[in-house]
Design a protein around this nucleic acid. Structure first.
Length: 153
DNA sequence: ACAGGAGTCAAAG
DNA sequence: CTTTGACTCCTGT
């Protein structure tokens, strides 16, 4: 199944199967009509902090890339990690992490927007504004949608 | 075998 | 502040 959904100046295209496994997510300029998983539309509308039960094909991928995608998938909503941090956990180099993000076929499902550079935001394809928009959305939602007794750390 | 990347850090201009 | 170079580890040719 496939379809798209408006998000800011872009449309988010998604293709997935009956197992809720996502094989492609892409940011495009014009709409492609078709259904979109409810959890994705709720996520992008700021009404949910996860995209369960959706999973990405990348999560069962083997090799260093698969490890990177699994690690990135565990970054909590509203938080960020640097390329370096991910690299150190897995005993590889930061540039490999960047490369894995660039070749991520399922952004959002694998939250590559939560991986930033040590100095600043880092990169994003096709447009850096998508990354900033997603991060802004998450920090805003995290505050409003999750007020209860959480604190400490 | 070799070039290069959604990075990082230190040193120099 | 910006630029440059060395370093790193993996991928595509």
């Amino acid at each position: 199944m496939e379809g798209s959904l408006k998000f800011g100046l872009w449309f988010v295209y998604i293709r997935w199967n009956s197992e809720c496994e996502v094989s492609r997510v892409r940011f495009i300029k014009s709409e492609i009509s078709g259904p979109v998983p409810v959890s994705l539309s709720r996520f992008l509308a700021g009404k949910a902090m996860d995209i369960k039960p959706l999973t990405s094909i990348h999560q069962h991928q083997e090799g260093i890339y698969g490890s990177i995608y699994r690690e990135v998938a565990h970054i909590p909503y509203g938080e960020t990690r640097t390329y370096k941090e991910i690299a150190e956990i897995l005993g590889t180099g930061p540039r490999i992490v960047g490369m894995a993000m660039k070749r991520n076929l399922t952004p959002i499902i694998i939250p590559c927007h939560r991986v930033v550079s040590s100095h600043g935001i880092g990169g994003f394809t096709p447009d850096i504004t998508i990354k900033t928009d997603l991060l802004n959305l998450e920090s805003r939602v995290k505050k409003t949608l999750k007020i209860p007794a959480e604190q400490s750390k």
